[in-house]
């Protein structure tokens, strides 16, 4: 059996987790160590999406800290947003935020989400994420490392 042999030879690929979150967000207490995450790409180049995918991969494994990606904003506590908010994505982003039940948090991932990055002033760009929905945490970087994204999510789950 190829797969059984593979499972045995690979073993555990998750890297040892660094020490606990530096400063848990004040809102993290209401979530009680679990955060369902919904992701919205508001106009990014997909670089940040690849890094978010890596943050939930076996190596960085954000799930061990209580974060889990979900399929619906109704199920979510945390909204991760990437990219400068484009004119066309401002409405869907606002609707996604409004579809989330309280308490809800927004994490802006990447330089573009914080200050439009290299796309600032583009004709299709409306502005940074904080112009459209209130932002609770930011992850700098272009693109941010998966470890930085995991650290931001740990600040939300408090674990």
């Amino acid at each position: 059996m190829g797969l059984i042999g593979k499972i045995r030879s690979v073993g555990r690929v998750a890297e040892p987790a660094p020490e606990g979150p530096a400063q848990p967000l004040p809102a993290a207490a209401a979530l009680g160590g679990s955060a369902q995450v919904r992701h919205v790409d508001a106009g990014s180049c997909n670089g940040c999406e690849i890094e978010i995918g890596q943050a939930f991969s076996p190596v960085y494994d954000a799930e061990r800290h209580g974060a889990r990606l979900v399929a619906s904003p109704r199920h979510a506590d945390v909204l991760t947003v990437t990219g400068p908010v484009t004119v066309n994505m401002a409405g869907p982003l606002r609707k996604t935020y409004e579809a989330m039940p309280e308490p809800r948090l927004v994490v802006a991932v990447g330089d573009c989400a914080r200050d439009c990055g290299m796309f600032a002033g583009g004709y299709g760009v409306l502005g940074p994420v904080s112009d459209v929905v209130p932002v609770d945490a930011q992850v700098p970087g272009c693109p941010p490392e998966p470890a930085a994204i995991v650290a931001a999510l740990r600040g939300v789950t408090g674990r």
């Binding site: 499972i7 073993g11 076996p58 889990r68």
Partner: peptide, 10 residues
Amino acid sequence: RARLEGRAGG
């Protein structure tokens, strides 16, 4: 499942 996928898991 996480253990068999090489993850640490929740």
